[in-house]
């Protein structure tokens, strides 16, 4: 069993970021209690391919089978740990607004219409090299209540499960060149320009002519001690 490296909290947003108003009453104000990882963080659920459906990573057709409206994009990349080792078998789950910037959610009442053929979520497992690939539509920017004229940049929410419960990460992916990134109080919670590492790059080598553009988004999860952790074999 190998320990997780301590998290470098300076890379992450502080809990309280008043420009993002929801943090004002929801940010814990006391310091976190820092401890070395234990078995409870070094173990975690394991996911297998048998748990996925064939179209889970294709958001264009995974809801009704009829293609969703919007600009077709491939989002792909590699998941590695802080020692640059690929993480195979990581569960990646994504969710996003449709091409008009509207979520299929009870609490989203934005003017843009729902697309009857877009569900807005997908999931996949990384391969032996830690690589993943989704096909989706480019999500629209959308306005949100934060006390002003606030718009979220185009983004895709990412949830990652590495090898241990303590390696868990939830983040967001932005699109290269979007001028709203610099204006977004949520994107700007990331300290010292670190938000650049959440910006996917246009990847014309992967784009498919006459079919889909492509963006590359590489992800780094918290590292572990050098001794390899023997993964559990059993799925859930």
């Amino acid at each position: 069993m190998s320990g997780l490296l301590p998290r470098n909290r300076a890379l992450h947003p502080p809990a309280l970021t008043p420009e993002y108003r929801s943090t004002r009453l929801r940010a814990p104000l006391r310091p976190l209690v820092a401890l070395p990882s234990t078995l409870s963080e070094e173990t975690g659920p394991v996911f297998g391919h048998g748990m996925l459906e064939p179209n889970d990573s294709d958001l264009i057709v995974n809801f009704t089978g009829t293609p969703a409206l919007g600009e077709r994009v491939i989002v792909h990349g590699q998941v590695r740990d802080e020692d640059a080792r690929a993480i195979p078998g990581a569960l990646i789950e994504i969710w996003q607004a449709n091409a008009g910037g509207r979520y299929r959610h009870k609490n989203d009442s934005y003017l843009a219409p729902l697309d009857p053929n877009f569900g807005g979520a997908g999931r996949t497992l990384t391969d032996d090299q830690g690589r993943y690939r989704f096909l989706t539509v480019r999500p629209g920017a959308y306005p949100w209540p934060n006390g002003g004229n606030n718009w979220r940049p185009m983004h895709i929410h990412f949830s990652l499960f590495g090898a241990g419960f303590g390696q868990r990460l939830i983040t967001q992916m932005y699109f290269e060149g979007d001028p709203l990134i610099a204006l977004c109080p949520i994107a700007q919670t990331v300290p010292e320009g670190g938000v650049d590492r959440l910006v996917a790059r246009l990847d014309m080598d992967t784009a498919i002519p006459m079919d889909a553009l492509a963006y590359r988004f590489d992800i780094v999860l918290r590292g572990r001690d050098q001794t390899m952790f023997e993964n559990c074999k059993e799925g859930l």
Partner: peptide, 10 residues
Amino acid sequence: RLPESPSQTA
């Protein structure tokens, strides 16, 4: 050495 990807709100 790579820096961990920053977290964002869910």
